[in-house]
Amino acid sequence: MVVATEAIVLHTLKYAEADVIAHCYTLSDGRKSYMLRRILKSKKGALKISLFQPLTQLEIIANHKNKGTLESIREAKVLYPYKTLHTDVVKGSVVLFLSEVLKDAIQEEEANSALYHYISSAFIFLDALEDFANFHIYFLLNLTQYLGFYPEVTDEKHLYFNLLEGTFQEKSSNGYCEKGSHVEALRQFFGIKIDAIPQIKLNKTTRLEVLHLLIRYYQIHLHGFRKPKSLPILNQLFQ
């Protein structure tokens, strides 16, 4: 079946000498994987490898057999040309990190327009954002709404955050309960709009602790979720 859809590039993997497998999140069908034949050597082909940088937003015409095998792309063009995400070194590191998170977190081959538009609009916003030190924290926390394990915030003023239950509570009840400045910092991200991100001021140590708290939260609630390989690079940023 020939499908015209929007797609966000999650990850690419070189295959053989000149082929690439591109994992994308599509508006029409959720996650899809495409074999891009000879794209690393083709100079006149319709597809260029530059189109498949992490989190690039595309319009594609693709062949979807929907049999769990690799699909193919006939045509592709950039839907939203980023101005900074692939040229700013620091933003590029954030993009690499979050593309790794999305690659592991999203596995469903079914449409989810709310999740798609959240990802799309968030990175368009990041492209224009100047103070983006806390963007990845906001993005990861709010992504859990679409993945099904957003924390229960009814008792968010309680001292402990129970990562297993996704709740705040007065006392520690298991080995998954945490308290401290990183939990206090996390509270600041609940219920805010995306344009309020720069108003939250965190030092580097606290920001890293919040990030590692969220990574652990993902590992608990998403089967097979791995700590991103680019995490050490992100740890060095945002002095």
Rank of each mutant, 00 (worst) to 15 (best):
T144F: 00
L55E: 10
Y150H: 08
E170N: 05
E170T: 07
M35C: 13
S93M: 02
A111P: 08
N174V: 01
Q188F: 10
E209N: 14
K43L: 03
N203D: 15
K48H: 11
L85G: 09
Y34H: 01
Q57H: 14
F132V: 06
L234T: 04
F149C: 07
Y150W: 04
G175D: 14
A16D: 10
D88E: 10
A105V: 05
S99E: 15
D104C: 12
F190V: 06
F190L: 08
D195G: 01
G148T: 07
I61M: 00
A22G: 00
K32I: 05
C24S: 08
L13K: 13
L164D: 07
Y80L: 09
K229Q: 12
N63Q: 12
E130M: 07
Y138A: 04
L27C: 06
S93Y: 03
A4E: 15
I215P: 00
I215M: 09
R37K: 15
V95I: 15
A196M: 13
Y146L: 02
H23L: 01
T144V: 01
D88G: 10
S50H: 11
Y116I: 09
Q236M: 14
H136Q: 08
K193Y: 13
L186S: 02
K44T: 14
A105C: 07
H136A: 03
I49D: 02
E110S: 12
I61Q: 00
L231C: 06
V89Y: 08
I124H: 06
I137A: 02
S99K: 14
E109Y: 03
L102N: 10
G180C: 00
T87L: 09
L115P: 01
L202F: 09
D131E: 11
Y217H: 01
Y34A: 00
F52A: 05
T205G: 09
K41A: 01
S28K: 14
L96D: 06
H86M: 12
H223Y: 10
F189N: 00
E6H: 15
A122H: 00
T205Y: 12
F97A: 05
L141K: 04
S50N: 13
D29W: 08
V9K: 12
A7K: 12
A7C: 11
H64D: 01
K103Q: 14
R207K: 13
L58Y: 02
M1N: 05
L70D: 01
I8R: 08
C177F: 03
P54D: 11
F149Q: 10
T84E: 09
E130N: 11
L222N: 07
Q239D: 13
K229S: 07
T144I: 03
P198T: 05
P81D: 13
P232Q: 06
K91V: 06
C24D: 02
Y176M: 09
S121Q: 15
Y176L: 05
A4M: 09
T69M: 11
Y80M: 05
V94Y: 10
I200M: 00
I106W: 06
D19P: 10
L55S: 07
R74L: 12
R187N: 10
H23K: 13
D19G: 08
F189I: 04
Y118P: 00
